[in-house]
């Protein structure tokens, strides 16, 4: 399998990982070759981790870490980690604040999904800048071999994973989700360290 397709599958795996866990994702992480294939696809090493929890424990761990029905649930929404808007014409007192939904990233993601024709393909109960939606769009771009667009998307819409890793670490240091998110972050950082922008891509399409 070509590398870009391995990376596509890696992203699709992660897209499922950040949804309430079911049999399919559990089957993947409990496979004996899981760690090897994950590290190969991501080009990075997985930090040593805890024992594999049972599916029911994984479900409870997901609920306690990420569910909105959980106290102190960690957000998996990009907007939450960034200023609500960079548009200086916004006259609301909270416009530049962090910690809110439907910020610029959500607006941009919704635009991309609509323009590409994917808006009807994702569950309307998901937010446009939910990490799973971003990862699925990234996987789609790899599938289409739209490398520059993939690089822009990952570098601009997944450049908040440091904060997500830190939020998980604060709540549960020995979480499987922490180790897996750290690995995703390493993978993504390969694209974000260049602080990619369209202008930069025009000058030098390879980082």
């Amino acid at each position: 399998m070509p590398d870009h397709m391995k990376q596509r599958d890696l992203l699709l795996f992660y897209a499922e990982l950040y949804k309430p866990p079911g049999d399919a994702v559990y089957e993947v992480i409990s496979h004996p070759d899981f760690r090897t294939e994950l590290e190969q696809a991501s080009g990075a090493a997985l930090n040593d981790c805890c024992d594999l929890p049972s599916l029911s424990s994984l479900k409870e761990e997901f609920r306690s870490l990420f569910s909105s029905s959980s106290q102190n649930g960690i957000s998996l929404i990009e907007s939450f980690y960034k200023p609500w808007t960079t548009d200086q014409t916004a006259a609301l007192p909270f416009a530049q604040s962090k910690g809110m939904m439907m910020g610029d990233p959500a607006w941009h993601m919704r635009y991309l999904l609509e323009e590409i024709g994917l808006n009807s393909s994702y569950d309307p109960m998901f937010y446009p800048d939910h990490i799973s939606v971003i990862l699925e769009l990234a996987a789609f771009l790899l599938e289409e071999q739209e490398t520059d667009k993939f690089t822009l998307l990952v570098s601009q819409h997944l450049n908040w994973l440091d904060d997500l890793v830190e939020a998980i670490r604060k709540q549960k240091k020995d979480s499987l989700y922490l180790k897996l998110t750290e690995l995703l972050n390493k993978f993504v950082n390969e694209f974000t360290i260049c602080n990619q922008s369209f202008d930069r891509l025009k000058e030098d399409s390879v980082c």
Partner: peptide
């Protein structure tokens, strides 16, 4: 092996194409 049974993969959306959006528009 890594690819689990996706519950809502965009790959299935046959009519969709990333070519519909310019690279400029991908730059937030």
């Amino acid at each position: 092996m890594l690819k689990p049974v996706s519950r809502r993969s965009f790959i299935k959306a046959s009519a969709a194409t990333a070519a519909a959006v310019s690279l400029t528009s991908f730059d937030m």
